[in-house]
């Protein structure tokens, strides 16, 4: 079999070997999510936003005005593309990102302290509530940051920066015994 992007995860090299049991602060690396970028055509931003928020099968993350990242844990990339094409029906451009981004899920009591070492955003629940999402800079890497729970954050990074971001996050979390593994 040819080893190419489609059968090799960007962090295979980093997470080789027997996984350590997850600690209190844990970094889970996403495996096989379907992701797509939705870009609303001019003038259709509000309509597309309403359409996206009306569906519960996938998570919608704000990226920029008229631009969202859609993530599905269950669907295939092709299935998500079809689903979004049908939903937006010409109001938006859909771009598959499943192989282009890597999902990092950071959970545990010290996540905010860990992220504070790299992200210049106020992550207090008053300023950045659960469900909030935005593009931000983590160290020198532009990521899409989402708060999915009180102490759970997800970072979506371009695949070519995944190894760098992984090393950065592990350094940021060393003081808090951050462990890492592929998500189950």
């Amino acid at each position: 079999m040819i080893r190419d992007h489609y059968n090799r995860h960007a962090l295979d090299e980093k997470l080789r070997g027997a996984p350590r049991p997850p600690g209190a602060n844990h970094l889970a690396i996403g495996h096989r999510q379907a992701m797509a970028m939705v870009l609303a055509t001019a003038g259709e931003e509000d309509a597309v936003e309403r359409l996206l928020s009306s569906v519960t099968e996938f998570a919608v993350r704000f990226s920029a005005p008229g631009e969202w990242l859609v993530i599905s844990e269950n669907d295939t990339p092709e299935g998500l593309q079809r689903c979004l094409d049908a939903l937006c029906s010409g109001r938006a451009h859909i771009l598959d990102q499943s192989e282009a981004r890597v999902l990092f899920r950071l959970s545990g009591p010290s996540t905010r302290r860990i992220l504070a070492k790299g992200i210049g955003l106020d992550l207090h629940p008053i300023a950045f509530a659960a469900g909030a999402s935005a593009n931000a800079l983590c160290g020198h890497i532009a990521v899409n940051l989402v708060r999915t729970g009180e102490d759970v954050f997800e970072l979506l990074a371009p695949r070519s920066f995944a190894e760098s971001l992984f090393d950065d996050l592990m350094t940021m979390g060393r003081e808090y015994d951050l462990t890492a593994a592929f998500a189950a």
Binding site: A64, P65, G120, L121, D122, A127, A134, N135, A136, L137
Partner: peptide, 10 residues
């Protein structure tokens, strides 16, 4: 206006 308060490095 779209993202909130951000550091100038961004």
């Amino acid at each position: 206006p779209h993202c909130g308060v951000r550091p100038k490095e961004e």
